[in-house]
Design a binder for these strands. Sequence first.
DNA 1: ATAATATAATTAGTTGGCTAACTATTAGTA
DNA 2: TACTAATAGTTAGCCAACTAATTATATTAT
Lengths: 168, 168
Amino acid sequence: MGGFVLNLNKREFPTREALRQFAKQIPAINVSAVELLLQFLQTSFEIQHYIFDILEKKYKLSEGKLMVMIILYQSSNGIAPSKLAEKACVTRATISAMLHRMIRDGLACSFSNSTDGRAKVVALTEKGRVFMDEILPEHFLRTARLMNNLTEEEQIQLVQLLKKIKGN
Amino acid sequence: MGGFVLNLNKREFPTREALRQFAKQIPAINVSAVELLLQFLQTSFEIQHYIFDILEKKYKLSEGKLMVMIILYQSSNGIAPSKLAEKACVTRATISAMLHRMIRDGLACSFSNSTDGRAKVVALTEKGRVFMDEILPEHFLRTARLMNNLTEEEQIQLVQLLKKIKGN
DNA sequence: ATAATATAATTAGTTGGCTAACTATTAGTA
DNA sequence: TACTAATAGTTAGCCAACTAATTATATTAT
């Protein structure tokens, strides 16, 4: 427990000097608030790289594809591509291309809806479900471990701060 | 002040039920820790969309391109593409293609290094600098405003929590 | 001095994101 | 009923990211 360190992928920030210059032009630019937000996005960037570089190397699985496959995994009766796009927050064009590759690779299958000639229903294949059952436990374990450096209390604090940032 | 709400782009999460099932298999999977991390990444996702959808629509400027242009902006004597790649945390191949488009669009220029025949030096053009001077103030203002929902004290708390997540 | 190795940048090919334009089908309305 | 609207999905074309392979130049070692 503890001792976990994310120490890769340090992207160059705007310098504090540069930010101060802009703040002179527009006093409402709060330099430390900008730096905090950049730090927040940088932390997210490092976490995403930590998690998804592993999945990419081991299973050729990207963040977007995992999102889509989790939604499919949870849609036991299949789902329309348009619904899938909506739930994954990507365009239908993106889903269309991704499904094409997933069907090519035997991870998903699609059926045409009998009551509506325009519509389709897609679902994971057996191979797709087996794949998810194989990768998800270790994925969620890695995910949980990333929060191990925080105490219970700090985790509650963070939940509250995230809610406030979103404005509710 | 206050009242700012990020309310778009709600991606579907793994259900708590599903997470509990995996936690039965691997007890070290702490369900609330996983949910916290997903919430953290989701908040980051919403912030990035809020900021970069605006820049994309107004100026055809993506997150990656902004990162690179900020580094160029801060490299007043120019910089080698390989250094640029390192500082932006992307591959040299990515930088190579991006520079090609930026030069095509008149935002950057490149010179060959006289002392090393392999090397290049790239820099923003006058047009590129003017562009950055135009967009950065409002960009940093938007950035700062995203933290407006937090008090000074909460901002300090968040800095501490981010440091702890990273493990130092 | 030459051969082997390392480095800088580019290119080819894949994925995942986008917008815009298109086809097909359904639903709504005059 | 026939015309118009809306909806579902696909396609074309672009950008940004990746890996792997290639070219050209420097550096190192034998």
